[in-house]
Design a protein around this nucleic acid. Structure first.
Length: 488
RNA sequence: GGCCCCUUCGUCUAGUCAGGCCUAGGACACCAGGUUUUCAUCCUGGUAACAGGGGUUCAAAUCCCCUAGGGGUCACCA
């Protein structure tokens, strides 16, 4: 291990956002490549919105992605605890020190006072900001009022001057302190705020690099100033471009699914999700789009990250999911897809185990036709329905009825099929059927279209004789017999 | 509105730091062909971009300035 320590610090409020997943992936890869440490810290300072349920989902989601932390709330480490709510003592200590050294001061403003101030400023079309009314309050007076029990918040005293952030993604970014408010470090309630604890905890956890979303860029001067007040060197920062929705705004539920769980539930393969997330703001070489996580880790560097926001393209994501599925081995695909088949009520786990070979053939036949695991069940559902009630797709039925001699052809083919000793070899069966058709002077379409319709109900799909073979002689004959009646 | 960030095909991007290798490459999507029992896959080809304007230079997508546009952020949320 080196001194390199990075972290992901999600607040457990709601679902596991894709943006969080990407940030985690980038931090994790950076540390992994360089032998550093990756820390997971839960930022539950907002007691109102934080839930255990959400925290659990974050741990589970990140693990599902394959992102594993070296230190975290469920994993001991030398710099814990890794849940901010459990670090209150330490935060209070730092606040105390800052107050006594004059880097922070008490603000006795009431919420009403502040909202009046804001309203007045807005009315004058000014930027709403704290006016520093308690900044220069006499220290003795401040102590006296505090001792008297008057409620107060603790504000950071921002000095004159300017701060330049050397950002690993963006280069130097300069902020004039005149633009930085005397921000609240500790609320009237005694609860510390994000900008305060994030620095306390990053210091305590010896974080060396902070890679996070661009929305945090404007917070950075506040945090850097705090490091300076504590006479500590700030970490290196790198602000990642935002992931944007199709409306070009920060990705949100407005324009589509943002939760990792939604994509998992819809049957996006893990590898595709990881791969796609890597492509948001980073590229391997500009040519190779498809790569595995090991390749990502091996090649990732924060300085190669794009500056501009990345519009999330659901089409490309789906394509990548489909491409991933096509490259999977059949047994792996069968495993991945089994839960979806079970959930659809088509088979149960025992049934799949019993007919494993059959199931794999069933799955293999759809491998190049599905882009998501969830697309499989509806495509194979007809195999599990009644033989005399196969649902005919209107397009399939129309195609079948187009052939005048459909009924005779089906009847004759049924007789031929009944006489076949085995249906196990679908390729041989196809050859034999083609020979049969040509002997009778039939065009292939005149046989295949009606046959596909009565067997599967679908207008397109897997190899016809694969379907015949999978169905078995009894079912196939029953479906043909039903078709003879239904298409008359 | 203030401040900050950004700007290459519709979208993700390579190229920008070290100007010439760029008549700007790849991918998704789209269009056209081909393979195929259908659908899909697969293969081949095509349409499509350096935001605009000024500089600097023998030479600019690449450096500088301005303009425009987009985004982020302005909480006792994180």
């Amino acid at each position: 291990m080196t001194d390199l320590r990075v972290r992901i610090a999600p607040s457990p409020t709601g679902t596991v956002h894709l943006g969080l997943c990407r940030t985690a992936l980038f931090n994790w890869a950076y540390a992994k490549k360089r032998g550093g440490t990756f820390v997971l810290r839960i930022e539950d300072t907002d007691k109102e919105r934080s839930t255990q349920e959400s925290e659990r989902a974050i741990l589970e989601g990140l693990r599902w992605l394959g992102v594993e932390w070296n230190e975290g709330p469920d994993k001991d480490g030398p710099h814990g605890p890794y849940r901010q709510s459990e670090r209150a003592g330490m935060h209070a200590e730092v606040a105390e020190r800052l107050l006594s050294e004059g880097h922070a001061y008490r603000c006795f403003c009431t919420p009403e006072e502040l909202s009046e101030l804001r309203a007045a400023q807005e009315a004058r079309k000014e930027t709403p900001r704290y006016d520093g009314r308690y900044r220069d309050l006499d220290r003795a007076e401040s102590d006296r009022r505090a001792a008297a029990g008057e409620p107060f918040a603790l504000r950071f005293r921002v000095p004159d001057g300017e701060t330049t952030i050397p950002d690993l993604v963006r280069g130097d970014v300069r902020f004039d302190h005149a633009e930085v408010d005397d921000w609240v470090m500790v609320r009237t309630s005694g609860a510390p705020t994000y900008n305060f604890v994030v620095v306390c905890d990053d210091i305590a956890m010896k974080i060396s690099h902070v890679f996070r979303g661009e929305e945090h860029l404007v917070n950075t001067p506040k945090q850097v100033l705090l490091y300076r007040a504590l006479e500590l060197e700030p970490p290196r920062f790198g602000h990642l471009p935002l992931m944007l929705g199709t409306d070009r705004k920060k990705l949100s539920k407005r324009t589509g699914d943002t939760a990792l769980g939604d994509y998992i539930a819809n049957g996006y393969p893990r590898e595709a999700i990881v791969n796609f997330l890597c492509l948001q703001g980073w590229a391997l070489d500009g040519e190779t789009e498809v790569f595995d996580v090991a390749t990502f880790v091996e090649n990732f560097d924060i300085v190669d990250v794009q500056k501009a926001g990345a519009v999330f393209d659901p089409e490309k994501f789906k394509w990548l999911a489909g491409d991933t599925i096509r490259r999977m081995s059949v047994p792996a695909l069968a495993d991945a897809v089994a839960p979806f088949v079970v959930r659809a009520g088509l088979m149960d786990d025992a049934g799949i185990a019993d007919r494993r070979d059959w199931f794999e053939r069933l799955v293999a036949g759809e491998q190049e036709r599905i882009e998501l695991f969830s697309e499989l069940p509806p495509r194979i559902a007809h195999f599990f329905g009644a033989d005399d009630a196969v649902e005919y797709d209107p397009k399939a039925e129309k195609g079948a009825r187009k052939h005048e001699a459909r009924v005779e052809t089906l009847r004759a083919f049924g007789d031929w099929l009944a006489a076949q000793p085995t249906l196990d070899d679908s390729a041989a069966l196809a050859d034999a059927a083609k020979a049969w058709a040509s002997d009778r002077g039939l065009k292939l379409g005149a046989l295949f279209q009606p046959l596909r319709c009565v067997l599967t109900g679908q207008a397109g799909g897997r190899d016809l004789f694969d379907a015949v073979s999978l169905l078995g002689k009894e079912s196939a004959l029953a479906r043909i017999a039903a078709g003879v009646r239904r298409l008359a």
